[in-house]
Amino acid sequence: MLINWYRFSSPVSFYPLAGSMSSAFGVLAALFAGAGLFVALLLAPPDATQGDAYRIIYIHVPAAWMAMFVYLVMAGWSAFALGFGTRLSAMMAQALAPTGALMAALALWTGAFWGRPTWGTYWAWDARMTSTLILLFLYLGIIALRNAIEDPRRADRACAVLALVGAINVPIIYFSVQWWNTLHQGSSISLTVAPKMAMTMVAGILIMTAAAWCYTLSVVLSRLQAIIVERERGATWLESLIDLRPAGDGAR
């Protein structure tokens, strides 16, 4: 079947699709989170050395992965917007930033509450923790930059440049545990080496990561809808939304 993908590159045609995708990913996120939490808190046995404190891994690792992936996706859309001047890709980057910031904050927060019982400290200026903190500041900087510029099209370009420059930080975070002698441990799960932990634990982390992905997609697409309405106001097609959605029923 031939699909005209270009059709979806305009905010107009993407608005309804974004809504149904957001709902579908929301349902998937709830299902994965339910299964993941069951494995994480009930099924998986306590760790031999860390006891139950290790259970933080099931939210810490997915949050940290998401913080990095979301940044790369945001930088990718930013590059696209910068290169082709496409509005929707810039809006996509705009919609991703707050959720990326939240994931980075959660990675740091859960890391602190895991570090205290296992390393004896909530925080250390270790390479991975510091670079993750910089990631959070990059997200916040991009959000602040957007809010500081009145013209959305100029804000798109400025934010895209900042996002692209900051992308160098992602490989630094990823490889920090190899490049420097850090307090933070090396990767627990790698694509090249067989995992060093029990399969139940690996499964738990992967299911929680799937939940994090679906949640992110769902909330970002929903935010994208809001951004489309905010920014495309005045476009005649938007009035069709009013017809379809009576007062009080504007948002799902």
Binding site: A226, I242, G250
Partner: peptide, 9 residues
């Protein structure tokens, strides 16, 4: 999103 649609209306 609700506010955006409200302002649009």
């Amino acid at each position: 999103r609700k506010r955006a649609l409200e302002e649009l209306r």
